[in-house]
Lab assay of single mutants.
Amino acid sequence: YHADPSLVSFLTGLGCPNCIEYFTSQGLQSIYHLQNLTIEDLGALKIPEQYRMTIWRGLQDLK
């Protein structure tokens, strides 16, 4: 799967570019796929713990 530029820029902007593959490997290719994820969902996606809160907060800021 290839990540949408919106996803790449979002995660890169948060300092988490190495997390892109965790999302794309589950078929979550764009920022729209991420918008309703919970902190528990990020854990289920195996996002490293040190990035989960950062990503979750970033998603809240998009709403």
Rank of each mutant, 00 (worst) to 15 (best):
L14V: 12
E21H: 07
L59A: 08
L59C: 06
L28G: 03
V8N: 08
D61Y: 05
A44D: 15
P48A: 07
Q35D: 14
F10S: 01
L37K: 11
T12E: 14
D41V: 01
L37C: 07
D61I: 11
D4W: 15
M53R: 12
G15I: 00
N18S: 06
L14D: 00
V8C: 11
L45N: 04
H33N: 09
W56A: 11
G43M: 12
D61P: 07
D41K: 07
L62K: 03
Y32P: 09
K46I: 03
N18L: 05
L37A: 09
K63A: 07
L28R: 08
R52Y: 14
S30R: 09
H2W: 14
L11A: 01
R52N: 11
Q35P: 04
H33T: 11
S6Q: 13
L14H: 04
R52S: 08
N36Q: 12
L28S: 07
L62S: 07
Q50V: 12
C16V: 11
P48E: 08
N18E: 12
Q60H: 03
G15V: 01
Q26N: 14
I31W: 09
G15S: 05
R57F: 15
L42P: 01
A3K: 15
P17V: 11
N36M: 10
G13P: 04
R52V: 09
G43D: 07
W56I: 14
S25I: 04
E21D: 11
N36V: 10
L7I: 10
I47S: 00
A3V: 15
Y51L: 06
H2R: 15
Y1S: 14
F10M: 02
H2L: 15
P17Q: 14
G13Q: 12
P17F: 12
C19N: 02
N18D: 13
I47H: 00
C19A: 09
L62A: 06
W56M: 08
T12K: 14
Y1E: 11
Y22Q: 10
L42N: 01
Y32G: 14
W56L: 12
L42C: 02
Q50P: 05
R57Y: 10
I47L: 12
S25D: 07
Y32L: 14
K46A: 07
G43E: 13
Q29T: 13
A44C: 12
D61H: 13
Q29P: 11
C16W: 01
E49W: 08
L34F: 03
L45A: 04
L7D: 01
S30C: 08
N18I: 11
I39V: 11
C19L: 13
W56E: 09
T38C: 07
G15C: 04
M53I: 07
I31T: 10
D41H: 04
I47K: 00
L37S: 05
P5I: 15
C19F: 12
P48I: 05
T24V: 07
L14R: 03
T24H: 06
D41T: 05
G13F: 05
D61Q: 06
L34I: 11
G27V: 01
Q26E: 11
T54D: 10
W56C: 06
G43Q: 13
T54F: 03
Q50S: 13
I31Q: 12
I55V: 09
I47N: 02
R52C: 06
Q50C: 14
R57Q: 09
G27P: 03
Y22V: 07
L11G: 00
I47D: 02
M53D: 12
D61M: 10
R57G: 10
T38A: 10
L28M: 13
P5C: 15
G58R: 04
F10C: 01
F23S: 00
I20R: 06
G13W: 03
N18A: 13
S30K: 09
E40K: 05
W56V: 08
K46N: 11
L62V: 10
L42R: 01
L28Q: 09
Q50W: 05
Q60S: 12
I55L: 07
L59Y: 06
Y1A: 11
A3Y: 15
L45H: 02
S30W: 01
F23R: 00
V8L: 15
L7W: 01
L62P: 09
L34Q: 02
S6C: 12
E40P: 05
F10P: 01
A3C: 15
P48T: 03
H33L: 05
G27N: 08
M53S: 11
Y32K: 15
T38K: 14
Q60W: 08
S6V: 09
G13L: 06
L59T: 05
H33S: 13
E49Q: 09
P48Y: 00
Y1N: 13
P48R: 02
I20F: 03
Q26H: 12
R52W: 07
L7H: 00
S6P: 05
C16I: 15
D41W: 00
K46G: 12
L14T: 03
L28W: 05
T38P: 04
H2Q: 15
Y22G: 05
E21R: 10
S25K: 13
Q29N: 06
K63G: 10
L34E: 01
F10W: 03
A3N: 12
G27D: 13
T54Q: 12
I47Y: 01
N18K: 05
P48Q: 04
G13D: 13
K63L: 03
M53L: 12
G27L: 00
R52T: 11
N18G: 13
L62F: 08
G15H: 03
